[in-house]
Design a protein around this nucleic acid. Structure first.
Lengths: 326, 326
DNA sequence: CGGGGTGATGTAATCGTTTTCATCGGTTAT
DNA sequence: ATAACCGATGAAAACGATTACATCACCCCG
């Protein structure tokens, strides 16, 4: 047996005689032989490893995303190399995955949440197959997979507008520049305008993605004027919970006195009473589409990058249901 | 210039003349040369990649763990290859990380939660540097890093016993065989015995790590007899939240009517009102100790594996505070 | 002035695969 | 009977680095 024959048995079994093949196979099993991946990669320039760069592994969102991505990657024979919080730690290194073992991975999945940093172009310029989650721009030279913030926010706002006059509707977002929050704010305003109401300054607030910000906003608002009769659309569930707690503390009940919708449909929405309405992002699909897109890019670089946008959906629960008062 | 010289400039700069070195460095920068990692690994048999095998990437616990692990690994020049839910998907493949690219990683971090599967021995037999989180056994041939379930559960139980008689204390766990739940149950029982009370069968319940189970348990218990005046120690926060909600639904208030302590000190504990007492696991330290231990094992295989146990601490909040009634 | 030490660099083997090309026996077709 | 062909296998080059060893110029000293 020469090494060449062994290699053929393992890769192109039909090139080798039946008898020889079986003898080799047996030997392989008995000796527990496993081809050396480094040598393989050295030759093929492929590692079957995908790098995933997240703004911050925090909370269930990223956990779920990783979970689904890993599952799909495994199905396709790839492994996931994770890079948490690459963006913010790399001070000004505009290219996400800068600290990454770029030459170790076959491709990169990058999730973007902020407008300024880590432009799509910068990622495209890495000259490595890439798929971007959370940000798209027509004609981008990378695959993009997004969830329809506009659609979800529209649905949420419309739902609130059904039972509440436009001037009593509020949007509580995070800081300007956050891609998600900005889109949601815009859709909120547009929906109000569609009803002929130009949103006042105080109907749209900017803060952070935290419970505390939600609490503070609600408290400040109740101090300024009553929150009773209002409908609030929070840019994420944590903010929503903060608002819910602050409201309850002052004796306001949902949905009777205040109607509330969050975003992300996280676990907590169904852990509170009343349960909180929220816009669902199809995280598993998001992850699995991203993997699929990236693998397509890796294995068929000649094809043009696709731009996928997944639908979101409003899940109505008691916190905003019309007529579900206590 | 020969390639050998270049290699020396990059690895042993002192072996090469100053002038040559600078010339090479300049060329390297201008050409954007980067050594091929595969070739490097082929020779050194090192990839500087660490595999992380988790029972299931789900919820914030694992997100936080990954976050901290990645951070520490990066500091030490390693990358993380993640394998989510390896255990349960690999039907009977007793070795976790079976589906893993074992020959791609320098070492393995495995988190164990169930007794039966994926024995420490099986991991040791992989003959690859390994660190196990969540399970230890004296003399194990792998590094182990655990958090002190017994200590935390003891503190929690003692705290409950301070204001509630032992016969009105309950432990609500997950299924038998779960390492965490079992330890916590044992510590709970021992604490009761230390007060001279042998726990009744119905004082310790087994279910799942879910909100629903907590809710069901509490509801069933309230149907059987009153929960008022009881103190409940839940094996994790989700169960605790289920219990809290069920109790409130029946008009019971915490801590006046029911006192409650959870485990994990997850985000939700401070999102509910009243805030829920819980036992904190030092996740960042857990992750970073695991990485340190593994890297030690990789780089100094001659040293004996260490077994580290991190302390947990009870965080008392309003759900169980004595005299904090409404 | 020649030999040995020294510091800088080049040569070539090596790591473990894949893959091209050559070889070789054996059929088949002419 | 010979040429053409074919299927199976081996030999060797390549992938891109590291590193032991050889080489070489040079300097110092006896």
């Amino acid at each position: 047996m020469s090494i060449a024959t062994v290699s053929r048995v393992l890769n192109n079994p039909d090139l080798v005689a039946r008898a020889t093949s079986e003898k080799v196979q047996r030997a392989v099993r008995e000796l527990g032989y496993r081809p050396n991946l480094f040598a393989k990669s050295l030759l093929s320039k492929r590692s079957r490893v995908i790098g995933v760069s997240l703004p911050d592994i925090h909370g269930e969102f990223y956990a779920e995303l990783m979970h689904a991505a890993d599952r799909r990657a495994r199905e396709l024979g790839y492994h996931l190399l994770v890079s948490a919080g690459a963006h913010q730690t790399d001070t000004d290194d505009a290219t996400p995955g800068g600290s990454f073992a770029l030459d170790l991975v076959d491709g990169l999945i990058v999730m973007l949440t902020e407008r300024s940093r880590a432009d799509l172009e910068a990622i495209a310029n890495l000259n490595i197959p890439a798929a971007v989650i959370g940000c798209d721009r027509p004609g981008a030279r990378v695959e993009t997979i997004t969830y329809d913030n506009i659609l979800g926010a529209e649905q949420a706002t419309e739902h609130l507008l059904e039972g509440t006059p436009p001037e009593r509707c509020y949007f509580v977002g995070t800081h300007r520049g956050n891609l998600d929050s900005d889109d949601r704010a815009r859709a909120f305003c547009d929906a109000l305008r569609a009803r002929g109401h130009e949103p006042e300054d105080d109907q749209v607030a900017y803060g952070e993605f935290t419970f505390e910000w939600g609490w503070d906003w609600a408290t400040a608002r109740m101090d300024a004027d009553a929150l009773a009769g209002a409908a609030v659309f929070a840019a994420n569930d944590e903010i929503a919970v903060g608002i819910a707690n602050a409201a309850r503390e002052r004796g306001l009940e949902m949905p009777r006195d205040v109607r509330l919708v969050g975003f992300d449909d996280s676990r907590i929405c169904t852990l509170l009473r009343p349960e909180i309405s929220s816009v669902r992002i199809p995280i598993p699909e998001l992850a699995s589409e991203a993997i699929d897109a990236l693998v397509r890019r890796i294995e068929h670089p000649e094809q043009d990058p696709k731009h996928t946008r997944l639908a979101t959906s409003l899940i109505v629960r008691d916190s905003s249901r019309i007529g579900a008062g206590a």
